[in-house]
Simulated scan of single mutants.
Amino acid sequence: MYVWARLLRAVLTARSRGPYVMGEEGRLGFRCLPTDIDTNVHLNNARYMMLADVGRIDIFLRSGLLKLARQNRWAPMMGGMQSVFVREIRLWRRFEVVSSIDTWHGAQVIGRHRFVLDNGETAALVMTTAGIYDLPNRRFVPIHEIFAVLGYDVTPRSPTEAERIFMDSHASLRAVARRGG
């Protein structure tokens, strides 16, 4: 089942899994299929990113963010990501993508996607930064404004050391890219 079918399954089962509650985890189960593997017969590194996208879209859908974004002509946009691979996910192995919104600062939200094997071990971790772009007003929307419209009364926790390092690294790399290089 290619990633589009997996995304469709997540969309079609979103209602039965209930609304996403900020601070909790979203879980999607998968199996490593022949279309997912590389020459080492384990999950291809690009597939981790695609499945993290499915986890992120699941959160956006179940939290009401996608509906709100369509109404306001907002576009969820990735800023960057970092991944670390700890254990391989071999062909036919079952695993879950456990996604969460961990904290935010200004217009930048930090997401986490853990790839958890069927025995409970973490196989990989993908950390992301994203924002919501307001197309008509040409700006990124502060996350607290989005949460207020969605009806969440939450305060972000302080970023962990790993999250601060990730955000600093992301900002530095973005500056290099903007300079052309």
Rank of each mutant, 00 (worst) to 15 (best):
K67Q: 10
L68G: 04
L68Y: 03
A69K: 11
A69C: 12
R70M: 07
R70L: 11
R70W: 13
Q71Y: 02
Q71L: 14
R73H: 07
W74I: 04
W74V: 04
A75S: 15
A75N: 10
P76V: 07
P76M: 05
P76D: 07
M77C: 09
M78K: 01
M78Y: 07
G80T: 08
G80M: 01
M81P: 01
M81D: 10
M81Q: 14
Q82F: 05
Q82C: 05
S83I: 11
S83L: 06
V84I: 07
E88W: 02
E88I: 08
I89M: 00
I89E: 00
L91A: 11
W92E: 10
W92N: 11
V97H: 02
V98N: 04
S100R: 15
I101A: 09
D102F: 03
D102Q: 12
T103E: 04
T103V: 11
T103R: 02
W104L: 08
W104D: 06
G106W: 05
A107E: 03
Q108V: 12
V109P: 01
G111A: 06
G111Y: 02
G111R: 00
H113T: 02
H113E: 01
R114T: 03
R114L: 13
R114E: 15
F115Y: 10
V116R: 08
V116H: 07
L117A: 04
L117G: 00
T122W: 00
T122H: 00
A123M: 09
A124D: 05
A124S: 12
A124M: 09
A124E: 11
V126K: 00
V126D: 00
V126L: 09
V126Y: 03
M127E: 06
T128E: 10
T128C: 12
T128M: 06
T129C: 13
T129G: 14
A130S: 12
G131D: 10
G131A: 14
G131N: 08
G131K: 09
I132Y: 01
I132D: 02
D134F: 05
P136Q: 10
N137W: 03
R139G: 09
R139F: 14
F140A: 08
P142A: 14
P142R: 15
I143C: 07
I143G: 03
I146A: 10
I146C: 08
F147M: 13
A148V: 04
A148N: 14
A148Q: 15
A148E: 15
A148S: 15
V149R: 15
L150G: 15
G151H: 03
G151K: 02
